[in-house]
Amino acid sequence: MIEVKALGKQFGAQIAVNDLSFRVERGQFCMLVGTSGCGKSTTLRMINRLIEPSQGQILINEQDVTTLPPEQLRRRIGYVIQGVGLFPHRTIHHNIATVPRLLGWKKADIDARVTELLTLFKLDAATFANKYPHQLSGGEQQRVGVARALAARPELLLMDEPFGALDPLTREHLQDELLRVQKLLGITIIMVTHDLEEAVKMADVIAVMDQGELLQLDSPEALLRQPRAGFVQSLVGGLDRSLRLLAIKQVGQVMTPLQQQPSSSIPSIVASANLRDAMALLIWEQAELLQVLDANGIAIGQLSMSDLLQQGARA
């Protein structure tokens, strides 16, 4: 659990973060969204004390972060930035091993952890461990950056627009990878993004900030259904909200279980796809019905246009 209370930070006459108060439960994925300069990154840097708050209190598992030496605190918190920040003169193995080595882990334990993390992020250890960052693609470098942040099993992972510089396809793939790893490890993540689509897809809770203040903290669905008037409402959009709501739910959550074997002419979609993708497929195929497949390609249900329209009507 992380709790930020009445947090303030002032730079000269400008207040970057003002009276910010929120709580993130253990294992939650929290997104900080808002326009550039609204205080998102400053908030992250105050949590790990790269910037000291002017006032207030930050608690991690009920412990005030100011009671710990900064370097000890940061070894308990993973931190990932947009530029990755890998050491160019060190191999991938040595990059990931950085914090465990500082903590005095045994070599065998470090080697095992590096292999474990490379495997977790679907990077073959035999292929990648002895490479250098410049030999990797942008997406591979970002995977290694997250792996390095997780190497010492931190209580909290902070991420500052980690996918912002990547192409859309790589970005989407890494979003899926991070969600898979986060659910597998149960780690608490606070991530900064300017992309509401990314926040809606990934977050358990979204914190909308503007001019250094927290305007609304809610689940993606609650934020889209009942945005606070003013900035939040303009951020989530008007008619776009229905499409974003469709993107939250998976086909398998609203499909009708299969009663009889569907015709082979009916277009199909996997149960893990979201409802917005299902809507797009129905329109593209000019169909009224989709058959739903499980991960093995076996038909398990069906989804109609009327099912999707009912979901949109509740937006």
Rank of each mutant, 00 (worst) to 15 (best):
A203P: 06
D240H: 13
I283W: 12
P220Q: 06
A295S: 15
S234K: 14
K201I: 07
I110Y: 11
L196G: 00
D109S: 10
R90L: 15
P257I: 10
R241C: 05
D240N: 15
P154A: 06
E285V: 06
G145T: 04
C38V: 01
Q10E: 12
G297V: 08
L73M: 05
I298L: 14
G104A: 13
L158A: 00
G164Q: 06
T127K: 15
L158N: 00
A271N: 11
D176Y: 09
T127G: 02
T67W: 02
P262E: 13
T256F: 02
N130C: 07
G138Q: 08
P162A: 05
L309A: 12
R90D: 07
E116M: 10
G301E: 10
N61W: 03
T91I: 12
L179V: 07
G212L: 00
Q72T: 15
Q14I: 14
Q14C: 05
W284M: 12
S304W: 09
K5P: 06
L246Y: 07
A247D: 04
G139S: 06
V4C: 02
G56S: 09
N18S: 14
L235S: 03
Q135R: 10
E140P: 01
G12C: 08
G252M: 11
V80M: 02
A229H: 13
A295M: 11
T256I: 13
E52Q: 11
L258G: 04
Q57K: 13
R171M: 04
E221C: 01
A229Q: 14
T67G: 02
P220D: 03
Q28L: 01
L243V: 11
Q260A: 14
P227G: 02
M255N: 07
P227D: 05
E116K: 09
G139A: 04
A280H: 12
G83L: 10
Q63H: 12
G39L: 00
E221W: 06
V205G: 01
L166H: 03
G37T: 07
K201S: 05
E197I: 09
K107I: 08
G312M: 15
S264A: 15
D210E: 14
G164S: 15
R90I: 08
K183A: 15
G297H: 06
Q233E: 15
V80E: 00
T170G: 07
